[in-house]
Simulated assay, not measured.
Amino acid sequence: MGAGPSVALTPLAAPCPTDRVTINGEFGTAAFNIDVADDEPTRAQGLMHVAQMPLSAGMLFVYQKPQPLSFWMRNTLIELDMIFVDGFGEIKHIHHRAQPHDETVISPGSIPLVGVLEINGGLAKRLGIKVGDVLRHPAFESREEPWNCAE
């Protein structure tokens, strides 16, 4: 008897990691290892009381629906860049070098947004990250279907 048809099995793609984001722009690609703040307690805590953070690290704040977002730096010990994004991960506003302990409200206004990436202060300019660049993370939809997070 002859052998049956040969079937090549393709392994299922692993889910995209939730502890990493990439930002793509004219400058190229930057990647950050992140903690995700996606509920009220973790968003309220944020990066308060963190004395230092590696250059390749950050915190991603994620909201379930688009809304105006605002932050302040009470009890935050390090200078931060705040990168505000819409539901597709497109960067809509960058607040550079938010100052530690400052209670001034930081907001891009009434633009409905769903996420904010906080990274070390000054890093966005140093890397060349700009409004219009795209942050990729499983929390955001992709305009390029399907999005391959392995890229």
Rank of each mutant, 00 (worst) to 15 (best):
H101Q: 12
H49R: 13
P66A: 14
D38M: 02
Q52G: 09
I23Q: 05
I83C: 04
E90F: 04
G132W: 10
P54D: 15
P5G: 06
Y63E: 01
N120S: 12
L69Y: 13
L77I: 13
I106A: 05
H137A: 07
K125A: 15
L127F: 10
A14V: 02
K65R: 15
A139L: 00
D86R: 08
L127T: 13
F71K: 03
E141N: 14
T22Q: 13
V62A: 12
D81N: 08
L77P: 00
G89R: 03
V62E: 03
S142Q: 00
V62F: 11
T104Q: 10
M82G: 03
K92W: 01
I78F: 09
T76H: 08
I78H: 09
N24H: 15
I23W: 06
F61D: 02
E151G: 05
G2C: 00
S6C: 08
M82N: 04
K125Q: 15
N33G: 11
P17T: 08
G58S: 01
G4Q: 05
V21E: 04
I106G: 03
N148T: 09
A51T: 13
K65Y: 13
H101A: 07
P41E: 10
L80W: 07
M73I: 04
L12W: 01
N24I: 10
R20I: 07
S110L: 07
S110Y: 06
A8L: 12
R20Q: 13
I94H: 04
M82R: 05
I129P: 00
K125N: 15
A37R: 05
